[in-house]
Design a protein around this nucleic acid. Structure first.
Length: 598
RNA sequence: GGGGACGUAGCUCAGUUUGGUUAGAGCGCAUGCCUGUCACGCAUGAGGUCGCGGGUUCGAGCCCCGUCGUCCCCGCCA
């Protein structure tokens, strides 16, 4: 096929921007053939670029050369069009596209490149994700991907602008760094110069940002890639992007305000209004009321604890903790709906489920016959149930039983998890989750440590550089489980979109925390020696946060999967279907690195 | 590591319930016709390793076992 050259021609406009006001102008457009409609002596080409689509008309009579070329054109060919913007006659206006009032009458058509028949139509939208990822470069041409990546770009700009306004400086930190055995698995990079030694890709720039504070940078941020060699999820990739933030002499509420105002700006990009300040919820409150440390606060359902009289407990055979949740105005729900909810409740780690309805004629309950009306009425009163309400009950039946479905999980932990699951399931089934609205919350006062049943020791819940609350310092040695950290998460509509803490800036406290984690001075020194040294040279109080940029952009775009806002993501099995990575390498490369495959 | 769903034409899917003739549809693709289409239309045609391997059976897209891939979830993710 005879192709044309672009030569010195420049685009005068983009495809999506021509309007009635341009009528009469001579323009040059270039882009891809979205669709071609061949009527014989008249050929229509929908010319697409990142801004949209314009209809190009090639008429055999008035421009035979252009028409002849249009005859050969196929979807995804790259073409340039020189022609006149003309107004469409009223009956040929296309109201479905912004450029529908005009069309470009081709004088010259340039065939800049041909294209194989694509595996899927770019102009269509239904394609399995696997195929989309294999041919990502074609998928990227689709308006949806274009919009999402451009939204991501604008979000990144807004972050940089906002952080700059508040005196934060973007500093790059190394990608080739040192493995730290805490936390997630590291991706390792073998050293050619030092056989047997490895760099690690950072799980986050945590230590570097603290070192920048020690280095007097005062306020730092970075939009930065992080790497964690763990299994993928809809909201997790092995490499992902954080907005990493740290400030010296921090005051928690001041930091929160900076972040809240950032969220305000980001969500304004999608026309959303954010209500500030965000509510604070302690970790304990969140778990008690919502059964989750990242509760969706877009609907009301809350659990409350119920105290059952011993006699009632005995009749119901429930000896563990019990919680109740009032579902307002749902007493009309059908029996089969409730049966399905009960089936779901049985699949959770809780082992007792019941419910009652506040009907017109009083309480309707399946357990009423067993425990008597009085007991049910007092239960209803204790959760503030009103006429028309449905009340769900969840509990642990056999405290003493060996049949714990999850070995080691305490009754409280099981009830917590079950209550969180059931709350979300009920909200979904009863369609209580609002389709729009942005419900932010700060979750604060996380526990400092988490007990690892397998390893029989404490782990840092956030990370080992998180400061304990001052009032809990003396419990570091005596009662580590009771120590609360100065750590916080930012939660949006049930997703964790950020987390951070006020850090330890004193070497003595850092040493005590390592000790509580079961690390000897020698072990701590071997792992973080350089950092412990640095702490001794005048470390200012500091703290910060890291925001999950992919998750935030996905939420802004109304997507539940972060792959939709990443140009070249990997599949759930950590594979890039397009470039087929990971891949084997030449044995000589391995030899050079001193690496042998087992 | 575990659980669930899916895998049939280039794409999106039906067919699997209850095994039985030559495996279908829409879109796309090719060729021809068509001067106002915009999901153009009309006509004709090509296109299949039913993911892969094994088994049961006279006979497997369909049943069984294994395996691979994609998605979702649990574990994991300081």
């Amino acid at each position: 096929m005879q192709l044309d050259v672009l030569g010195t021609r420049r685009r005068t406009h983009r495809s999506g921007e021509l309007r009635k006001a341009h009528v009469g102008e001579k323009v040059f457009l270039a882009g891809w053939v979205d669709r071609r409609r061949d009527l014989g002596n008249l050929i229509f080409i929908d010319l697409r670029d990142h801004t949209g689509v314009t209809q190009v008309v090639c008429n055999r009579e008035s421009s035979p050369e252009a028409h002849q070329k249009a005859d050969a054109v196929r979807p995804e060919f790259v073409v340039g069009v020189e022609g006149d913007v003309v107004e469409r006659s009223p009956e040929t206006v296309n109201r479905q596209i912004p450029t529908g009032e005009i069309e470009v009458r081709a004088r010259t058509l340039l065939l800049l490149n041909e294209a194989k028949t694509p595996p899927f139509a770019v102009s269509d939208d239904k394609t399995a994700e696997e195929t989309r990822l294999r041919y990502r470069y074609l998928d990227l041409r689709r308006p949806g991907m274009q919009e999402r990546l451009r939204l991501r770009h604008r979000a990144a700009l807004a972050v940089r602008e906002h952080m700059n306004e508040h005196g934060f400086v973007e500093v790059e930190t190394p990608f080739m760094t040192r493995s730290t055995p805490e936390g997630a698995r590291d991706f390792l990079v073998p050293s050619r110069i030092h056989h047997g030694k490895f760099y690690a890709l950072p799980q986050s720039p945590q230590l570097f940002k603290q070192l920048l504070m020690i280095g007097g940078m005062d306020r730092y941020f970075q939009i930065v890639r992080c790497f964690r060699d763990e299994d993928f999820r809809a909201d997790r990739q092995a490499e992902f992007t954080q907005v990493d933030i740290e400030m010296a002499f921090p005051e928690r509420e001041a930091l929160f305000e900076i972040i809240e105002r950032l969220m305000e700006k980001l969500f304004a990009l999608v026309g959303a209004r954010v209500t500030r300040p965000f509510p604070h919820l302690t970790y304990d409150q969140a778990l008690e009321r919502y059964g989750s440390d990242k509760p969706h606060l877009g609907f009301g359902l809350e659990w409350s604890r119920v105290a059952l009289p011993p006699a009632v407990r005995e009749k119901l055979h429930v000896d563990g903790p019990v919680k109740a949740m009032r579902v307002p105005k749902m007493s009309e729900i059908s029996r089969s709906q409730l049966d399905r909810l009960q089936d779901f409740a049985r699949s959770t780690p809780a082992d007792w489920f019941s419910y009652f309805k506040m009907g017109g004629g009083g309480v309707q309950s399946t357990v009423q016959k067993v425990v008597g009306a009085e007991a049910v009425n007092s239960l209803a009163a204790s959760v503030g149930a009103q006429a028309g309400d449905l009340v769900l009950l969840l509990g642990i039946k056999n405290l003493a039983a060996e049949s714990d479905r999850r070995a080691g999980a305490s009754a409280e932990a099981r009830l917590r998890e079950a209550s969180g699951q059931l709350r979300m399931e009920a909200a979904r089934r009863f369609e209580l989750i609002p389709p729009d609205g942005w419900h932010f919350a700060w979750i604060v006062d996380f526990p400092m440590f988490e007990y690892d049943e397998k390893e029989k020791r404490f782990n840092a819940m956030h990370h080992p550089f998180t400061s304990p609350r001052e009032e809990d310092l003396e419990k570091l040695e005596s009662d580590p489980a009771a120590v609360k950290a100065r750590a916080y998460d930012l939660v949006l509509n049930g997703s964790e979109i950020g987390g951070g803490s006020i850090r330890i800036h004193r070497q003595d406290i850092q040493r005590r925390v390592f000790k509580a984690l079961g690390m000897t001075d020698e072990q701590a020194r071997a792992r973080f020696g350089f950092f412990l040294d640095a702490l001794e040279y005048g470390t200012p109080p500091h703290g910060g946060i890291a925001l999950g940029f992919d998750r935030i952009v996905a939420l802004m775009a109304g997507e539940s999967n972060i792959r939709e806002v990443i140009a070249f993501p990997k599949t759930a099995s950590a594979v890039d279907l397009m470039c087929e990575s990971p891949a084997e390498v030449d044995p000589r490369q391995l030899d050079e690195l001193g690496v042998k495959i087992k």
